[in-house]
């Protein structure tokens, strides 16, 4: 195996991982807070992708300034609506929520299929993102780092930092952490937990929208783009540990790289199976993920 190929795979893996990270971040947020698994999360990603496509149609080549805010706000609003109409009515019933949101995902996919067609719509990245850094000479001669992929990685790092700041340094984050610890106590101390649920859910959906916008730069957007990512995003949450942002980040990088390497060494179809075997083996060792939240109160019953 030559080094250029290996590093090329790893680099691609990292850029995929950065999308995966953003997708998983939203899931981890709402799961940590509400113990809710949102099967329609992938469709928020898709929605962000289509909004990016629309932005590029409306304003031409320099659409990125519009695309990201639009994808974020649009997906966040959609998330808020979903939270208000369905999710909060199923509170405390995680398995039922999972099924209901799967229904939502079917509806959103079919809507996208009817509006945009089932083949992917291409989004042309602006000209300034079309180049690549190429390594000349040395052992890695010929290795290229496309600007678009670097951009997506930077974007996800930026979002990760912003979320970290929001959770650990802001008042909002303090409320989120309080509810994470103990919903009843937080509520009795005056945290509006319902409002917080909705905000966090919308935030997670918005981040998925941004991920979709990033993804649109890498590949055409189609109605099933979300479901292609969602299963692995769930695995990231499981491996990272429930509701742990740091765990999610580490797990996304690990899984992204494992997938990329497995795809490089074997085949795309076998890579998915290998990834799963790795995840299940990992769970034998750490059934609560990389960074589990431990609490005796949670284990009562």
């Amino acid at each position: 195996m030559d080094a250029v190929f290996l590093f090329g795979q790893l680099f691609t893996g990292l850029s995929v991982a950065s999308i995966l990270l953003l997708a998983a971040l939203g899931l981890a947020l709402s799961f940590g807070l509400m113990r809710v698994i949102n099967m329609a999360h992938g469709e928020f990603l898709m929605f962000g992708g289509y909004l990016t496509y629309l932005a590029s149609q409306w304003v031409g080549p320099q659409f990125l300034w519009l695309a990201f805010p639009l994808a974020f706000v649009g997906s966040a609003l959609l998330g808020a609506v979903l939270e208000f109409t369905v999710i909060r009515r199923l509170y405390g019933r995680p398995l039922d929520t999972l099924l209901a949101t799967f229904g939502i995902s079917l509806i959103l996919q079919q809507a996208a299929r009817q509006i945009f067609g089932s083949t992917g719509v291409p989004v042309m990245a602006p000209a300034w993102l079309s180049g690549a850094i190429t390594v000349h000479g040395g052992a890695l001669d010929g290795l290229t780092f496309p600007y678009v992929r670097l951009f997506v990685m930077a974007l996800s790092a930026l979002v990760l930092i912003a979320v970290w700041w929001l959770l650990n340094r802001s008042r909002f984050g303090m409320h989120v952490r309080a509810v994470n610890q103990n919903r009843e106590v937080a509520s009795s101390l005056g945290v509006n937990t319902r409002q917080l649920d909705m905000l966090v859910f919308a935030l997670g959906s918005g981040i998925a929208g941004v991920a979709g916008a990033g993804l649109a730069l890498l590949a055409p957007v189609n109605p099933t783009v979300g479901s292609a990512y969602i299963v692995n995003a769930f695995l990231v949450v499981v491996v990272g540990g429930v509701g742990s942002v740091l765990g999610g980040a580490v797990a996304a990088l690990l899984l992204g790289c494992i997938t990329a390497l497995a795809e490089g060494l074997t085949s795309v179809s076998l890579a998915q199976a290998i990834l799963l075997v790795v995840v299940v083996a990992f769970l034998q060792w750490k059934p609560r993920g990389l960074f589990p939240t431990q609490s005796r109160a949670l284990e009562e019953a």
Partner: peptide
Amino acid sequence: RRITGVFVSIITQALVLAFVTW
């Protein structure tokens, strides 16, 4: 390993996905 609830759902779904992909 006492994996329960939605985690079982996620893992079983990933399993079937891996199987059909293979």
